[in-house]
């Protein structure tokens, strides 16, 4: 039983936390800007590499490097919005989705040209897991879970208690009415991109610290992240949290039933299933 938990459940929850970070960002873009953010994964990659650069070049401890990568990636997200998406606002949203694909390719290319296509990591060597009465968890894994709790609670407090957080919810809920209330859509969009960019950096960083850093790392989590967001219900932060965790668990547990190569396909299968039987997801989200 403990082996089952150590080998499948713990990795599943850790992977799921990384998906949850990404799925929360995806669900915010989907519900407020109303388009899919296909650059989400590659922006996470970028965040992971910015943290890597900060830790190697400035000699910062990795978690401090993350604190630097968050605002930088957030600024990058706002910049891509201003450069590529702003002029598409009044056009069909699918064009913005397409544009995010262009952004994804550009970000990936920058990573590959600057840092190459090899694999690296934040810290050399193997960290041994701590043993809690047979339960084996690494420190980084614990920090991942803790960070997820902090991010989700912080985001929930921001969205439910602050004026601009409520404005974000209002715009996700009813964009035209938000405009009639005089809510400045452009500011809400910029604010959302700031948060989404920060979340990208966080998901990329924790993906990097729990696995490895490589140029395709972000693109590889885009399907499970979207699956998590849609499983939870678009627009639901708590949905993205639960959905992301569930996708991570399913992926890890799937190897008990199907060949390992198809781990990545299991998230996709869930995505199809949710679209087929319950497109609003577990928490009754939106259908964009």
């Amino acid at each position: 039983m403990l082996d089952f938990i150590n080998f499948y459940v713990v990795p599943g929850i850790v992977t799921g936390s990384i998906y949850a970070f990404a799925a929360i960002g995806i669900t915010l873009v989907f519900s407020i800007m109303r388009h899919a953010h296909l650059a989400h994964g590659d922006m996470a990659t970028m965040g992971a590499y910015i943290a890597l650069a900060a830790s190697t070049m400035l000699g910062l401890p990795v978690y401090f490097a993350l604190l630097l990568a968050i605002p930088l990636t957030a600024a990058l997200a706002v910049g891509t919005d201003k450069l590529f998406y702003e002029h598409l606002r009044k056009k069909p949203k699918i064009l913005t989705t397409m544009s995010t694909l262009g952004t994804a390719l550009m970000l990936r290319s920058i990573v590959q040209v600057v840092w190459g296509v090899g694999t690296t990591s934040y810290a050399k060597g193997i960290t041994r897991p701590n043993d809690w009465f047979g339960l084996k968890i690494k420190t980084n894994e614990l920090i991942t879970l803790l960070a997820l709790a902090v991010v989700v609670l912080g985001l929930a407090a921001f969205l439910n208690r602050t004026r601009w957080g409520k404005a974000m919810r209002a715009m996700s809920d009813n964009r035209d009415l938000a405009l009639l209330c005089g809510i400045d859509n452009a500011r809400v969009i910029t604010l959302t991109w700031l948060i989404v960019g920060g979340l990208c950096a966080i998901s990329g960083f924790f993906l990097g610290i729990n696995t490895e850093i490589k140029s395709m790392m972000g693109w590889n989590i885009i399907l499970p992240a979207f699956a998590g967001a849609i499983l939870g219900g678009i627009g639901r932060i708590e949905g993205a949290l639960v959905g992301g965790l569930m996708i991570g668990l399913v992926e890890e547990l799937s190897v008990l039933f199907i060949p390992t190569e198809y781990k990545a396909v299991s998230a996709f299968a869930i995505l199809l299933l949710v679209l087929l039987v319950r497109p609003r997801g577990l928490f009754n989200g939106k259908i964009i």
């Binding site: 409520k166 919810r169 209002a170 809920d173 009813n174 035209d176 009415l177 009639l180 627009g235």
Partner: peptide, 10 residues
Amino acid sequence: PQVSNIFSEM
């Protein structure tokens, strides 16, 4: 407006 005149999730 006549329709969708509230924030229904708030």
